[in-house]
Amino acid sequence: MPKPLTIAVDVRDLQVAKTGTRTYLEELCKEFKNMESGEIRFHFIDTSIPVYAGNNKLLKYIEHARYQLWKQLILPLKAFFKGCDIVFCTDNCVPIIHLGYETVPVFHDAFCFESPKAYGKLWLWLYMKTAVPAAKRSPFVITPSAWSKKQIHHFTGIDHEKLEVIYEGPKELATTGNSQNDELLLSKFGLTPQKYLLHAGSMFKRKNIPALIEAFAKVKASNYPDLKLVLAGPTPANIFDSDYKLILDAIEINSISDEVLLTGYLTDSDLGALYQNALLYVFPSTNEGFGIPVLEAFKSNLPVLVADNTCLPEVGGDAVLEFNPFDIQDMAAKIKSVLDDPELREDMKNKGRERLKLFSWRNTAFQLVEVFKKAI
Score class of each variant (00 low, 15 high):
residue 215 A to G: 04
residue 103 T to A: 13
residue 29 C to S: 10
residue 48 S to F: 04
residue 312 L to D: 03
residue 167 Y to C: 08
residue 318 D to Q: 09
residue 289 G to A: 11
residue 100 G to L: 13
residue 340 D to N: 11
residue 153 H to P: 02
residue 209 I to T: 14
residue 98 H to N: 14
residue 271 L to I: 10
residue 283 F to N: 09
residue 148 S to G: 14
residue 24 Y to P: 00
residue 29 C to P: 01
residue 346 E to N: 15
residue 235 T to F: 06
residue 162 K to E: 13
residue 78 K to G: 05
residue 341 D to F: 03
residue 41 R to K: 15
residue 308 D to F: 07
residue 22 R to M: 01
residue 157 G to V: 11
residue 356 L to T: 02
residue 48 S to N: 13
residue 291 G to R: 09
residue 219 V to P: 09
residue 323 F to W: 01
residue 279 L to Y: 05
residue 69 L to A: 11
residue 97 I to A: 11
residue 289 G to F: 01
residue 177 G to W: 02
residue 366 F to R: 11
residue 276 Q to T: 11
residue 148 S to T: 08
residue 73 L to H: 12
residue 178 N to Q: 08
residue 84 C to Q: 08
residue 266 L to K: 01
residue 75 L to C: 01
residue 196 Y to C: 09
residue 5 L to M: 13
residue 254 N to F: 06
residue 268 D to C: 04
residue 376 I to H: 04
residue 363 N to W: 03
residue 76 P to R: 04
residue 254 N to T: 15
residue 87 V to S: 08
residue 66 R to L: 12
residue 320 V to Q: 06
residue 133 P to G: 05
residue 347 D to R: 07
residue 290 F to D: 00
residue 200 A to G: 06
residue 100 G to A: 15
residue 271 L to D: 06
residue 353 R to T: 10
residue 280 L to P: 08
residue 367 Q to D: 07
residue 297 A to N: 01
residue 4 P to W: 04
residue 112 C to D: 04
residue 372 F to E: 08
residue 43 H to K: 07
residue 24 Y to L: 15
residue 221 A to M: 01
residue 160 H to C: 09
residue 86 I to C: 13
residue 186 L to V: 12
residue 353 R to V: 15
residue 168 E to R: 09
residue 124 L to E: 09
residue 263 T to G: 07
residue 127 Y to K: 07
residue 347 D to V: 15
residue 187 S to A: 14
residue 2 P to Y: 11
residue 70 W to H: 07
residue 107 F to L: 10
residue 195 K to C: 08
residue 112 C to R: 06
residue 238 N to D: 15
residue 25 L to K: 01
residue 2 P to M: 07
residue 102 E to M: 08
residue 129 K to T: 13
residue 278 A to W: 01
residue 89 C to N: 10
residue 332 A to T: 06
residue 141 V to G: 12
residue 121 K to V: 15
residue 273 A to S: 15
residue 122 L to A: 15
residue 239 I to E: 13
residue 278 A to V: 03
residue 141 V to E: 10
residue 242 S to E: 06
residue 255 S to W: 00
residue 164 E to W: 00
residue 179 S to T: 13
residue 301 N to D: 12
residue 368 L to Q: 02
residue 101 Y to H: 09
residue 213 I to Y: 06
residue 32 F to E: 05
residue 190 G to E: 11
residue 78 K to Y: 07
residue 111 F to N: 08
residue 32 F to L: 12
residue 63 E to D: 11
residue 340 D to E: 15
residue 107 F to K: 06
residue 226 D to W: 02
residue 101 Y to G: 00
residue 66 R to N: 12
residue 320 V to D: 08
residue 95 P to E: 00
residue 2 P to T: 12
residue 146 A to I: 10
residue 173 L to Y: 00
residue 154 H to S: 10
residue 306 V to P: 11
residue 338 V to Y: 03
residue 11 V to G: 02
residue 329 Q to D: 13
residue 157 G to F: 06
residue 299 K to Y: 14
residue 276 Q to R: 10
residue 189 F to L: 13
residue 264 G to Q: 04
residue 21 T to Y: 09
residue 166 I to P: 00
residue 75 L to Q: 06
residue 20 G to M: 08
residue 62 I to V: 15
residue 217 A to Q: 03
residue 242 S to C: 07
residue 245 K to W: 03
residue 365 A to E: 03
residue 255 S to I: 02
residue 96 I to V: 09
residue 372 F to Y: 07
residue 39 E to R: 05
residue 239 I to S: 13
residue 360 S to M: 03
residue 269 S to K: 06
residue 63 E to R: 03
residue 197 L to W: 02
